[in-house]
């Protein structure tokens, strides 16, 4: 291929940058965290944004960025290997190459929280903790700008919990509480068994001074949203991150539409009062 064709890189939004895996962390039996070496050209991302990851010859998937936003040398993604592309990605190790386009999409509104030092309530389900991890990093890095941080995290079983080491570290910070719950367990687990809304019952929060961010399977987010509203939190203070089929990530392919929204560019993070009414309509 002639050299000059490469000049289109950067100009062509569909053309990935190819990055090497610096470190692969096997999180669970079906989930891996890949740290990509991006020391050359890392564009700044905001917590909640995603990249399109391309596995050579296999295809592309939209994956949220799960690393620290202030690390310009590394792009971190946590990937659950369940599909034709993510399945093989699970097998990647140090030195492997992934294509990356991005970052894309809307971000978690951290300024809404830091503005006035409000409390932040995170509700994560399953792999949904990954898109919230940059928020946690940011809040801990700029601890004084924020009020209390409550992390409620639900997973299928104890073995499915992500970032176990970090969960233990996070709860050591002052004003940070981390509560976990699993759907089912089989003996050795002495933590909570139940659902994410049970965890919400165990925490007190001030609806006037709290922002909630929810990320997880859509149905889990719906239940969490309803429970938050029942507890007095205004829908305008609740944010959730949506997922739909995506091919382009920039609003051209049409796949990710949810009524008026393109999840890729209007989302993935939405204020709940804007998106929630759409979720109750079947097959929208």
């Amino acid at each position: 291929m002639p050299e000059q064709e490469y000049n289109l890189q950067g100009a062509d939004p569909m053309l990935p940058r190819f990055l090497r895996v610096r470190r692969a962390v096997v999180e669970t039996h079906d989930t891996i965290t890949l740290e990509l070496d991006d020391s050359n050209a890392a564009p700044q991302f905001a917590p909640g944004q995603f990249n399109m990851l391309y596995l050579f010859g296999a295809g592309e998937v939209a994956i949220s960025i799960s690393g620290p936003p202030d690390d310009r040398q590394t792009l971190v993604h946590t990937i659950r290997g369940v599909g034709a592309v993510t399945g093989p990605i699970l097998q990647l190790r140090r030195g492997a190459i992934l294509g990356v386009r991005g970052p894309y999409g809307s971000a978690w509104p951290l300024h809404e929280v830091s503005n006035g030092g409000r409390d932040l309530l995170l509700m994560a389900g399953g792999i949904g903790l990954a898109p919230l991890r940059p928020v946690i990093y940011e809040v801990l890095r700029r601890r004084r700008e924020f009020g209390n941080l409550t992390i409620l995290y639900g997973a299928r079983t104890p073995a499915d919990l992500l970032y176990r080491g970090e969960l233990a570290q996070w709860r050591m910070f002052p004003g940070v509480s981390v509560k976990l719950i699993v759907d089912r367990a089989a003996g050795v687990w002495s933590g909570r068994i139940g659902v994410i809304t049970d965890l919400l019952r165990t925490v007190q929060f001030d609806p006037a001074e709290t922002i909630a961010m929810i990320c997880g399977p859509e149905v889990m987010m719906r239940f969490a949203y309803h429970e938050l509203v029942r507890r007095g939190l205004a829908a305008e203070r609740i944010y959730m991150s949506m997922e739909r089929n995506m091919k382009c990530a920039v609003g051209w392919c049409g796949h990710c539409q949810l009524s008026p929204f393109f999840i890729c560019k209007d989302g993935p993070v939405f204020r709940a009062d804007r998106i929630q009414p759409l979720l109750a309509t079947r097959e929208l």
């Binding site: 490469y6 289109l8 190459i97």
Partner: peptide, 12 residues
């Protein structure tokens, strides 16, 4: 195209 050093080059 995968290059001999393992890196990948892409072109439009």
């Amino acid at each position: 195209q995968r290059q001999s050093d393992g890196s990948i080059g892409a072109a439009t």
